[in-house]
Protein backbone atom coordinates (compact mmCIF):
# COMPACT_ATOMS: atom_id res chain seq x y z
CA UNK A 1 0.00 0.00 0.00
CA UNK A 2 1.18 3.48 -0.82
CA UNK A 3 2.41 5.36 2.27
CA UNK A 4 0.16 8.32 3.04
CA UNK A 5 3.03 10.81 2.79
CA UNK A 6 3.80 9.72 -0.77
CA UNK A 7 0.11 9.68 -1.68
CA UNK A 8 -0.25 13.22 -0.39
CA UNK A 9 2.71 14.37 -2.49
CA UNK A 10 1.35 12.68 -5.60
CA UNK A 11 -2.03 14.33 -5.07
CA UNK A 12 -0.33 17.70 -4.85
CA UNK A 13 1.88 17.11 -7.88
CA UNK A 14 -0.57 15.60 -10.39
CA UNK A 15 -2.65 18.78 -10.90
CA UNK A 16 0.60 20.69 -11.49
CA UNK A 17 1.22 18.55 -14.59
CA UNK A 18 -1.49 20.65 -16.22
CA UNK A 19 -0.16 23.99 -14.94
CA UNK A 20 -0.14 26.73 -17.60
CA UNK A 21 3.53 27.41 -16.83
CA UNK A 22 5.95 25.02 -18.52
CA UNK A 23 8.55 25.24 -15.73
CA UNK A 24 5.96 24.21 -13.16
CA UNK A 25 4.89 21.22 -15.28
CA UNK A 26 8.54 20.16 -15.72
CA UNK A 27 9.28 20.47 -11.99
CA UNK A 28 6.18 18.46 -11.11
CA UNK A 29 7.11 15.76 -13.63
CA UNK A 30 10.67 15.56 -12.27
CA UNK A 31 9.35 15.26 -8.72
CA UNK A 32 6.91 12.55 -9.76
CA UNK A 33 9.73 10.59 -11.36
CA UNK A 34 11.79 10.75 -8.17
CA UNK A 35 8.86 9.64 -6.04
CA UNK A 36 8.08 6.77 -8.39
CA UNK A 37 11.74 5.73 -8.34
CA UNK A 38 11.66 5.43 -4.57
CA UNK A 39 8.38 3.54 -4.73
CA UNK A 40 9.68 1.15 -7.39
CA UNK A 41 12.55 -0.11 -5.21
CA UNK A 42 10.66 -3.18 -3.94
CA UNK A 43 9.54 -4.03 -7.44
CA UNK A 44 13.07 -3.75 -8.80
CA UNK A 45 14.45 -5.96 -6.03
CA UNK A 46 11.74 -8.48 -6.88
CA UNK A 47 12.94 -8.46 -10.51
CA UNK A 48 16.44 -9.03 -9.24
CA UNK A 49 15.31 -12.09 -7.32
CA UNK A 50 12.99 -13.67 -9.85
CA UNK A 51 13.88 -12.39 -13.32
CA UNK A 52 16.09 -13.90 -15.98
CA UNK A 53 19.57 -12.56 -16.72
CA UNK A 54 18.26 -9.60 -18.79
CA UNK A 55 15.76 -8.62 -16.08
CA UNK A 56 18.45 -8.91 -13.43
CA UNK A 57 20.92 -6.75 -15.39
CA UNK A 58 18.19 -4.17 -15.99
CA UNK A 59 17.25 -4.26 -12.29
CA UNK A 60 20.88 -3.72 -11.28
CA UNK A 61 21.14 -0.63 -13.45
CA UNK A 62 17.79 0.53 -12.09
CA UNK A 63 19.14 0.26 -8.52
CA UNK A 64 22.07 2.47 -9.51
CA UNK A 65 19.60 5.06 -10.83
CA UNK A 66 17.47 4.87 -7.69
CA UNK A 67 20.51 5.15 -5.39
CA UNK A 68 20.43 5.50 -1.59
CA UNK A 69 21.55 3.16 1.19
CA UNK A 70 18.90 0.51 0.51
CA UNK A 71 20.40 -0.44 -2.85
CA UNK A 72 23.88 -1.18 -1.46
CA UNK A 73 23.25 -4.65 0.00
CA UNK A 74 21.62 -6.18 -3.11
CA UNK A 75 24.35 -4.72 -5.33
CA UNK A 76 27.12 -6.07 -3.11
CA UNK A 77 25.46 -9.50 -3.23
CA UNK A 78 25.26 -9.35 -7.04
CA UNK A 79 28.91 -8.28 -7.36
CA UNK A 80 29.92 -11.72 -6.12
CA UNK A 81 27.46 -13.77 -8.15
CA UNK A 82 28.92 -16.50 -10.37
CA UNK A 83 27.19 -15.14 -13.51
CA UNK A 84 29.62 -12.77 -15.24
CA UNK A 85 26.81 -10.62 -16.65
CA UNK A 86 25.34 -10.02 -13.19
CA UNK A 87 28.73 -9.47 -11.55
CA UNK A 88 29.82 -7.00 -14.23
CA UNK A 89 26.62 -4.94 -14.10
CA UNK A 90 26.73 -4.84 -10.28
CA UNK A 91 30.32 -3.56 -10.36
CA UNK A 92 29.27 -0.78 -12.76
CA UNK A 93 26.36 0.08 -10.48
CA UNK A 94 28.59 0.16 -7.39
CA UNK A 95 30.90 2.51 -9.27
CA UNK A 96 27.95 4.77 -10.06
CA UNK A 97 26.72 5.01 -6.48
CA UNK A 98 30.33 5.20 -5.10
CA UNK A 99 29.37 4.28 -1.56
CA UNK A 100 32.55 3.95 0.54
CA UNK A 101 31.25 0.87 2.34
CA UNK A 102 31.60 -1.07 -0.92
CA UNK A 103 35.26 -0.23 -1.60
CA UNK A 104 36.58 -3.57 -0.38
CA UNK A 105 34.06 -5.51 -2.49
CA UNK A 106 35.33 -3.75 -5.60
CA UNK A 107 38.98 -4.20 -4.66
CA UNK A 108 38.25 -7.91 -4.32
CA UNK A 109 36.91 -7.97 -7.88
CA UNK A 110 40.29 -6.79 -9.19
CA UNK A 111 41.27 -10.45 -8.83
CA UNK A 112 38.37 -11.67 -10.98
CA UNK A 113 39.26 -14.34 -13.55
CA UNK A 114 37.65 -12.36 -16.35
CA UNK A 115 39.70 -9.41 -17.64
CA UNK A 116 36.50 -7.62 -18.70
CA UNK A 117 35.25 -7.75 -15.09
CA UNK A 118 38.63 -6.62 -13.74
CA UNK A 119 38.52 -3.65 -16.13
CA UNK A 120 35.05 -2.70 -14.90
CA UNK A 121 36.20 -2.91 -11.27
CA UNK A 122 39.14 -0.60 -12.04
CA UNK A 123 36.79 1.91 -13.66
CA UNK A 124 34.34 1.69 -10.76
CA UNK A 125 37.11 2.32 -8.23
CA UNK A 126 38.23 5.36 -10.22
CA UNK A 127 34.89 6.98 -9.37
CA UNK A 128 35.82 7.06 -5.65
CA UNK A 129 38.64 9.59 -6.27
CA UNK A 130 40.49 8.07 -3.29
CA UNK A 131 44.31 8.53 -3.25
CA UNK A 132 44.56 5.38 -1.09
CA UNK A 133 43.60 3.41 -4.21
CA UNK A 134 46.68 4.51 -6.19
CA UNK A 135 48.90 1.60 -5.02
CA UNK A 136 46.02 -0.83 -5.58
CA UNK A 137 45.51 0.22 -9.21
CA UNK A 138 49.15 0.87 -10.09
CA UNK A 139 50.07 -2.74 -11.06
CA UNK A 140 47.48 -2.69 -13.84
CA UNK A 141 49.50 -0.07 -15.73
CA UNK A 142 51.87 -2.89 -16.63
CA UNK A 143 49.26 -5.32 -17.96
CA UNK A 144 49.97 -4.35 -21.58
CA UNK A 145 46.60 -5.78 -22.73
CA UNK A 146 45.06 -2.57 -24.01
CA UNK A 147 42.16 -3.11 -21.60
CA UNK A 148 42.96 -3.14 -17.88
CA UNK A 149 45.92 -0.79 -18.45
CA UNK A 150 43.56 1.60 -20.26
CA UNK A 151 41.08 1.60 -17.37
CA UNK A 152 43.90 1.96 -14.84
CA UNK A 153 45.35 4.98 -16.70
CA UNK A 154 41.95 6.67 -16.82
CA UNK A 155 41.10 5.92 -13.18
CA UNK A 156 44.52 6.92 -11.86
CA UNK A 157 44.56 10.14 -13.86
CA UNK A 158 41.45 11.20 -11.95
CA UNK A 159 42.93 10.29 -8.55
CA UNK A 160 46.66 10.95 -8.74
CA UNK A 161 48.27 14.24 -7.73
CA UNK A 162 50.60 14.31 -10.71
CA UNK A 163 53.24 11.86 -9.48
CA UNK A 164 52.39 9.39 -12.27
CA UNK A 165 53.21 11.79 -15.06
CA UNK A 166 56.37 9.94 -16.13
CA UNK A 167 54.56 6.58 -16.17
CA UNK A 168 51.86 8.02 -18.42
CA UNK A 169 54.50 9.54 -20.73
CA UNK A 170 56.07 6.08 -20.99
CA UNK A 171 52.68 4.57 -21.85
CA UNK A 172 52.26 6.95 -24.79
CA UNK A 173 54.80 4.64 -26.48
CA UNK A 174 52.72 1.47 -25.88
CA UNK A 175 52.25 -0.81 -28.91
CA UNK A 176 48.49 -0.72 -28.20
CA UNK A 177 46.64 2.20 -29.76
CA UNK A 178 43.95 2.07 -27.03
CA UNK A 179 46.66 2.45 -24.36
CA UNK A 180 48.25 5.36 -26.20
CA UNK A 181 44.83 7.06 -26.48
CA UNK A 182 44.28 6.65 -22.73
CA UNK A 183 47.78 7.89 -21.88
CA UNK A 184 47.34 10.96 -24.07
CA UNK A 185 43.95 11.64 -22.48
CA UNK A 186 45.44 11.23 -18.98
CA UNK A 187 48.22 13.72 -19.66
CA UNK A 188 45.57 16.29 -20.44
CA UNK A 189 43.63 15.85 -17.20
CA UNK A 190 46.33 14.84 -14.67
CA UNK A 191 46.93 17.42 -11.98
CA UNK A 192 50.25 19.25 -12.23
CA UNK A 193 52.54 18.09 -9.38
Amino acid sequence: MEPSATAKRRDALIPLLKDPDGDVRAAAAAAMEKLEGIQSLDEVIEQLKKGGVAAKVRAIYALAEIGGDKVVAPLVYCASRPEEEIRGAAIDALGTISNRSTLQVLVERLKDNNSGIRARAIRALGNFRDPALVPVLLPFLDSGDGLTDVEAILSLSAIDNGSLQERFVELTRSPNAATRVAAATALGVLRLA
Binding site: N114, S115, I117, L147, E151
Partner: peptide
Amino acid sequence: KPGKLSTIE
Protein backbone atom coordinates in the same frame (compact mmCIF):
# COMPACT_ATOMS: atom_id res chain seq x y z
CA LYS B 1 32.75 -11.27 -23.17
CA PRO B 2 30.99 -9.23 -20.49
CA GLY B 3 32.92 -6.02 -21.00
CA LYS B 4 35.38 -4.20 -23.15
CA LEU B 5 37.89 -6.14 -25.23
CA SER B 6 41.67 -6.26 -25.02
CA THR B 7 43.72 -5.15 -28.03
CA ILE B 8 44.26 -8.75 -29.15
CA GLU B 9 40.57 -9.55 -28.80
